[in-house]
C-alpha cells in the first residue's frame, strides 16, 4: 500500500541507506497535513451511509430520466446496488484520507475498473453524477474544517476524474 512513508522507505531501501534528512522532511510534511486528513476521515467514516445515500438519492432526483420505467433502474433495486457501489468508493476515499495518498482508490477501485466498465458496457454516469453531488455538497465549517474539506474534495475529484 503506497503512502508517503512507504514510498520514502522503498526508495531508501532500494539505495541501501538509512532514512536521510530529506526523507524525514517529506515524512514530516505528510504528518503536518495529516491532521486535516484524519479529521475528514473521521467525519466521513461516521457518516458514510448518509453521505453515500444522499449522493445517490440526489442523483436520482436531479436526473428524472434515471427513473425511466422499464429500465434497469426502474425499481429500488438499481438504486440500492448503485448506492452500495457509491459507498464502496466513499470507503476507499476514507482509506485514502487515512493513508495520505490515493493508493487505496488506485489499487482497489480504479486500476482495471475502467477496463472492466468498458468491456462489460457498464454505465459510469450514475457514479460520476453521485460523486459530483458529494463533491459540491461539502460545506465548511458545518461539515468539517476548511483544510479537511480541501483534502476530502481533492479525493472526490480524483475519484470522479478516474472513473469518468
Amino acid at each position: 500500500m503506497k503512502s508517503v512513508v512507504t514510498t520514502v522507505i522503498a526508495a531508501a531501501d532500494a539505495a541501501g541507506r538509512f532514512p536521510s534528512t530529506s526523507d524525514l522532511e517529506s515524512v514530516q510534511g505528510s504528518i503536518q497535513r495529516a491532521a486535516a486528513r484524519l479529521e475528514a476521515a473521521e467525519k466521513l467514516g461516521a457518516n458514510l451511509d448518509r453521505v453515500a445515500g444522499e449522493a445517490y438519492d440526489a442523483c436520482i432526483k436531479k436526473y428524472p430520466y434515471l427513473n425511466n420505467p422499464g429500465e434497469a433502474n426502474s425499481t429500488d433495486t438499481f438504486k440500492a446496488k448503485c448506492a452500495r457501489d457509491i459507498k464502496h468508493y466513499m470507503r476507499l476515499i476514507q482509506y485514502s484520507l487515512i493513508v495520505g495518498g490515493t493508493g487505496p482508490l488506485d489499487e482497489w477501485g480504479i486500476a482495471g475498473q475502467r477496463e472492466v466498465y468498458r468491456a462489460l458496457s457498464l454505465p459510469t454516469a450514475p457514479y460520476v453524477e453521485a460523486l459530483s453531488f458529494a463533491r459540491n455538497r461539502g460545506c465548511t465549517p458545518r461539515d468539517m474544517s476548511a483544510q479537511a474539506l480541501t483534502e476530502y474534495n481533492a479525493l472526490l475529484d480524483y475519484a470522479i476524474n478516474s472513473l469518468s
Partner: peptide, 23 residues
C-alpha cells in the same frame, strides 16, 4: 509494505468497514 496508516486501512478492509479508531 505497510505503515501505521495503511495497516489500519488493511485491517478495516478485511471486514469491509471504514477505519473507526482514528484516535
Amino acid at each position: 509494505m505497510l505503515d501505521a496508516f495503511s495497516r489500519a486501512v488493511v485491517a478495516a478492509d478485511a471486514s469491509t468497514s471504514t477505519v473507526s479508531d482514528i484516535n
